[in-house]
């Protein structure tokens, strides 16, 4: 990848539609840079040799066969799915409440609240991980379990819901609220009848993203995991060992699932915007 090609040069101040060739070329190279590793993983998942050397000598579906027979992987997939659903659900509740309060009320300290909610995702994951580890086991004397993972995930997923829902709320005309209030509806009724249906797609889109983030997370999970392993932890354990070609196959499946989820989230966001 030639990074030097992508160094910014003067931006021509022309009207939209004038496309300097170098800009398009740089963008295409950037796309290649972004996707090269994903393509490599998919390619090697069909490689017949165990060592990932180039060029690929021979193709096989063995790793997929191995993958689908690997009970440990499927246990981990089920476990990660459970964690993702519970963590995303908690994040939905926490995030929607926060976004609604931030959008509909006037009070001091909003930037501080935004900052606090966003901290777990802005600060390095390792900080969240070890802080919760020390808190749960060192301070509270609890055992690590699925619940410690869920709490960690819900904590850093909340901001996704807040952002998604707040963005949608800010697009909604206040006049809707006012009209509803004029007609004698309580704030709760207004929320139930007017606001919630309008932000529902944004909540779903955020929840899908939160699930995806939780499903792939390793940095925080590493410190909070108990007896059961999430999929990324299982993969990490095998990657550390080196030779594990079935991981390329597992990774390909993960990429496909993530793609479907992101597309779904995108679809919900669009639905939210055109509603």
């Amino acid at each position: 990848m030639n990074i030097a090609n992508a160094i910014p040069e003067p931006m021509p101040a022309g009207p939209k539609g004038r496309k300097p060739v170098w800009l398009t070329v740089a963008s295409i190279i950037t796309f290649l840079f972004l996707y090269l590793p994903l393509v490599v993983v998919v390619l090697y998942s069909f490689s017949a040799t165990k060592v990932n050397a180039w060029p690929i000598k021979g193709y096989t579906l063995d790793w997929y066969r191995e993958l689908f027979q690997d009970e440990d992987i499927w246990d981990a997939v089920r476990f990660s799915t459970f964690i993702g659903i519970v963590a995303a659900s908690i994040a939905v509740v926490l995030g929607t409440l926060t976004a609604y309060a931030l959008d509909r009320y006037r009070f001091r300290g909003k930037p501080l609240i935004r900052f606090a909610i966003g901290m777990p995702i802005v600060l390095p994951g390792i900080v969240t991980g070890v802080a919760l580890l020390a808190f749960f086991t060192g301070v509270l004397g609890l055992n690590l379990s699925r619940w410690t993972i869920i709490i960690g995930h819900a904590t850093f997923c909340t901001v996704l819901i807040v952002n998604n829902v707040a963005a949608r709320l800010s697009q909604l005309p206040r006049s809707l609220d006012e009209a509803s209030a004029d007609l004698g509806a309580t704030p709760l009724t207004t929320f139930r009848r007017i606001t919630f249906p309008l932000i529902r797609p944004a909540i779903v889109a955020g929840a899908i993203l939160a699930f995806t983030l939780s499903f792939d997370e390793i940095v925080v999970t590493f410190f909070l995991t108990g007896r059961e392993k999430t999929l990324p932890l299982l993969i990490w354990g095998r990657l550390r060992r080196g030779i594990s070609p079935e991981i390329n196959a597992a990774a390909t499946v993960i990429i496909l699932v993530s793609l479907v989820l992101v597309l779904a989230s995108y679809w919900f966001t669009r639905k939210s915007e055109t509603n």
Binding site: L38, Y44, N52, S258, L259
Partner: peptide, 25 residues
């Protein structure tokens, strides 16, 4: 969306892929 997508595909997998790309062979 294509730009954002790699963000949502496993970070672990992408880091591992570079090992394959950057190796001596």
């Amino acid at each position: 969306m294509l730009v954002v997508f790699p963000l949502w595909s496993s970070y672990l997998v992408r880091a591992f892929a570079w090992k394959t790309i950057l190796g001596t062979n």
